[in-house]
Amino acid sequence: MYVCNIEPSKPFMIQFLKYLLFPFSLIYKGITSLRNLLFELKVLRTFEPNIATIGVGNLTVGGTGKTPIIDYLISIFPSNKIGIISRGYGRKTQGFLQINSKSTSKDVGDEPFMLYSKNLDTSFFVSEDRVEGFKKAMLIQPNLDIILFDDVFQHRYLKPKINILLSDYSRPFFEDFLLPTGLLRESKSGAKRADIIIVTKCPRHISEIERRLLTDRIKKYTKKDTPIYFAVFQSLPPSNIENAILTKKSKIVLISGLANNLGFKAGLEQNFEIVKHFDYKDHHEFTKEEITEILSLFPNSNFVCTAKDFVKIKPLLNPEFLPSFYISEQKIRIINEIELKKEIFEQLGFIN
């Protein structure tokens, strides 16, 4: 069952630092609240695209599962021409770019490039300015009939038809604090802009009672009729480029550059013996020297990483090492999925 995990058990120094940072959070709250007010008063203008659009975002800094949710949304529109617009976090380029077969993760960012590699029939673009990105994407491909925007909840110059807000089960937004004391990008009241809320990374056997309790707490910050859904992220057995499945209880070496490296490790240590975990910051750009050193330290080993990290590691590997790398992917199971799909289709105007 979900348990409130705020303050008492945390080390004294962390709590002391939070108290020191609290005045800066008040200043940050004033700035972000004023910005939101200017949008509400229409002093700052928003652009509303003239086709079906869905924005996916969160209130907190860090991973809440936006990329897997974007991947899931692509799958529920098999008959539509879909475009994805992302900022392309961590890329070495700037401005608007369309992702193609000549792109690299350095050009467009690891997450967009990974999604592109999995969904070759979908059009992918990166642009810091989502409004400009939308307009340029439609000039290039005017036949697109759905655009999905990644990490756009605070990008208020754009107003998608549907705003989906994600909240991590293990660190829900309603228990967090504004930056820099906590991880909130804006006040909890920002949840009122959400048309749909999905609680991500839920335990496999989350109970109906627990879902109801979480719903009640989230509803304090949302519009009255905002639907709330729950998503379980299930790890699939790691497989390599030859589609070989890694045998349970195998000894493995983990390599990850994620927002939650510990969570990645915890999901695998139940079924495998982890010899070593090389963990890096989120969106880490791996080097040839790093990978060569890891291979030399653990020759003839099985290596496990995420799809996001593999798109950056793969170009650094000699062909003979590729089968030694196994990709750990996740499958999303939405509780009450039929209702979620119906809600999305209705809000987009696809069904009456």
Results as ranks from 00 to 15, higher is better:
I85K: 05
I82L: 10
L26H: 11
T287I: 04
D279C: 10
G90H: 05
F264P: 01
M138I: 14
T122A: 10
N100H: 14
H284P: 03
N243D: 13
S328L: 12
L317E: 11
L295T: 00
I82K: 02
I351C: 06
N336A: 14
T104H: 01
D129F: 06
E111Y: 01
D129E: 06
F325M: 05
G55W: 10
A52H: 11
F350Y: 14
L26F: 13
L340C: 14
L316T: 10
F12Q: 02
T60G: 01
I84R: 06
K161L: 09
S189Y: 04
E186K: 12
S301G: 04
C305E: 03
L340E: 15
K42S: 14
L297F: 05
R185T: 11
Y72F: 15
L37Q: 09
F173D: 04
F321T: 12
S324Y: 08
K106A: 12
D71H: 13
I146M: 10
M138E: 10
T200W: 01
V199E: 05
L37S: 04
I351P: 04
R130F: 04
G62T: 11
N50F: 03
V108H: 01
I274G: 10
S123N: 12
Y221V: 06
I332K: 04
R156D: 00
Y2C: 00
I334Q: 08
V253Q: 02
L236M: 14
I252T: 08
E128A: 15
L148D: 02
K42P: 00
Y72C: 08
K251E: 14
R204V: 00
T67R: 01
K201I: 06
F77Y: 08
K92D: 09
S239K: 12
